[in-house]
């Protein structure tokens, strides 16, 4: 069974997923970051594939991606770093990246390498659902890699249902109309949006702007858990990753 399904079957609430870019803050920190996160009770990790032009990201993730690239991070190096990660890390691992880097690497080779190192799913914000279904769905299936889709407040009902049905593993609910790194602004309208989750069977996590324990608990009232990116990167920067996770859960 895919580790993501396994997680959501065994844990229905307060799932914590962390995002950080590969090769950050230092080139060879990728695996030690993963081990630290698992040890401190994090349920799942999204490893960012650094990209020069991350359109959906705010300034903190842009800067971290740039630092990772300056450190010398590449996709081939990432697969090398992850080659024996499954000896020490058993929580679900996803890669999050922009379509250009994956396309350039070669989609089939990329999926094959994901399978080889034990990646469970992918989050590719700029690969449209229609393109995925038409051209890549069967390849993802062949290698057992899940494609996790995003929904956002502007998504209308009908598309929300489509995305929920098509998303594999869970649905990623973007908290607000913003790039990553904003702050969570709660509103009645947002509650209505979050409450749509109750009408679908796909598990869900809320992300973008989840920065502290308060935000995390708020998000968990609606979804099965939440995803923390920017705030964790800031903690990594200050060498306070462990304290940050402990404060969160």
């Amino acid at each position: 069974m895919n580790r993501i399904d396994n997680l959501f079957q065994n844990k229905k609430q307060d799932i914590l997923s962390i995002y950080f870019p590969a090769g950050y803050p230092n080139l060879n920190d990728t695996v030690s970051n993963l081990e630290l996160l698992q040890k401190n009770g994090v349920d799942m990790v999204e490893i960012g594939i650094p990209f020069s032009d991350p359109l959906a990201d705010g300034s903190a993730i842009q800067a971290a991606s740039k630092q990772a690239l300056d450190n010398g991070m590449t996709l081939s190096l990432l697969f090398e770093q992850l080659s024996s990660v499954r000896k020490t890390v058993s929580i679900p691992l996803l890669l999050m990246g922009y379509w250009n880097t994956i396309y350039r690497y070669g989609v089939d080779l990329f999926l094959q390498d994901c399978q080889k190192v034990g990646i469970d799913g992918l989050i590719i914000p700029d690969l449209p659902l229609e393109e995925f279904e038409e051209h890549y769905k069967s390849d993802f299936h062949k290698y057992g890699i899940y494609n996790v889709l995003l929904a956002c407040p502007e998504t209308d009902e009908a598309r929300f249902k489509n995305l929920a049905n098509a998303s594999q593993g869970f649905l990623y609910l973007v908290s607000s109309s913003a790039t990553t790194g904003g702050s969570l602004k709660t509103s009645e309208k947002q509650k209505d949006y979050f409450n749509r989750i109750k009408m679908i069977e796909t598990p869900s996590l809320i992300g973008f702007g989840i920065a502290n324990r308060n935000n995390f608990e708020y998000a968990c009232q609606f979804a099965n858990g939440a995803i923390v990116g920017t705030a964790f990167i800031k903690a990594l920067e200050k060498n306070q990753a462990q304290e940050f996770i402990k404060d969160l859960i």
């Binding site: 959906a56 700029d126 690969l127 449209p128 393109e131 995003l150 956002c152 502007e154 998504t155």
Partner: peptide
Amino acid sequence: GAYIPELLRKN
């Protein structure tokens, strides 16, 4: 084509 994040889809 239109290779955009879901956030821009509606627009």
